[in-house]
């Protein structure tokens, strides 16, 4: 694997830090006029999601991490693993609960997700920004109330619970923003 010098650090670069794969968020060059140059670097640990701040002397280097993001189609969950497929090659990958994490509740069969592979093994899964999911459970809709005020909880087919307007009924299809976990609109399939 390549090594990267501080002057090559930039947002999105994947490097190894303390044995974990990380992605660089920000790299700031600081140097007093007559003094030593440093790079203050913000990284996200791709295993824990935690943001770390580290300082390097300029020209120090880190090993690159074998981390790649690939679009994959979500196939099914077998109770233990979530199975994904690369649409072009039909190659399949099984992600465990640690890789899928909280995003499990947004995974709908056949949706295209971004899979992060570390040394060829699923490390993280990011669902599409918007997903369309059916309501499986909610209080009966209030006819004619389209004000959107107040709201109520609704359980969706994947188990996610979101706040929805009062007029939503069981069986309705909803567009949901997976980044905020918020209801966007009703949807027609």
């Amino acid at each position: 694997m390549a090594t990267y010098n501080t002057s090559e650090f930039k947002g999105g670069l994947k490097v190894m830090l303390d044995g974990d794969p990380c992605t660089i968020i920000e790299n700031e060059f600081v140097k007093p006029g007559k003094g030593q140059a440093f790079n203050r670097v913000k990284l996200r640990n791709l295993k824990t999601g935690r943001v770390i701040e580290r300082t390097f002397k300029s020209n120090e280097s880190l090993d690159g991490a074998d981390v790649v993001d690939t679009d994959m189609q979500y196939l099914y969950n077998d109770g233990e693993f979530w199975h994904f497929m690369v649409p072009d090659t039909f190659e399949q990958f099984a992600a465990d609960a640690a890789a899928v994490g909280d995003n499990a509740k947004w995974l709908k069969e056949q949706d295209i997700c971004v899979m992060t592979l570390y040394n060829g093994v699923p490390l993280a899964v990011v669902p599409p920004n918007h997903v369309i999911l059916a309501v499986t459970e909610t209080d009966p809709g209030v006819r004619g109330d389209t004000s959107g005020g107040g709201g109520k909880p609704a359980t969706l087919e994947t188990g996610a619970v979101v706040r929805v307007p009062l007029f939503i009924n069981i069986g309705d299809l909803l567009k949901v923003d997976t980044r905020s976990g918020e209801y966007v609109s009703r949807a027609k399939e």
């Binding site: 600081v30 140097k31 007093p32 003094g35 030593q36 440093f38 203050r40 300082t55 002397k57």
Partner: peptide
Amino acid sequence: DDVDTWRDLVLTH
């Protein structure tokens, strides 16, 4: 390490 490098760290950070 050079004490000035340590001083520069405190100064900049």
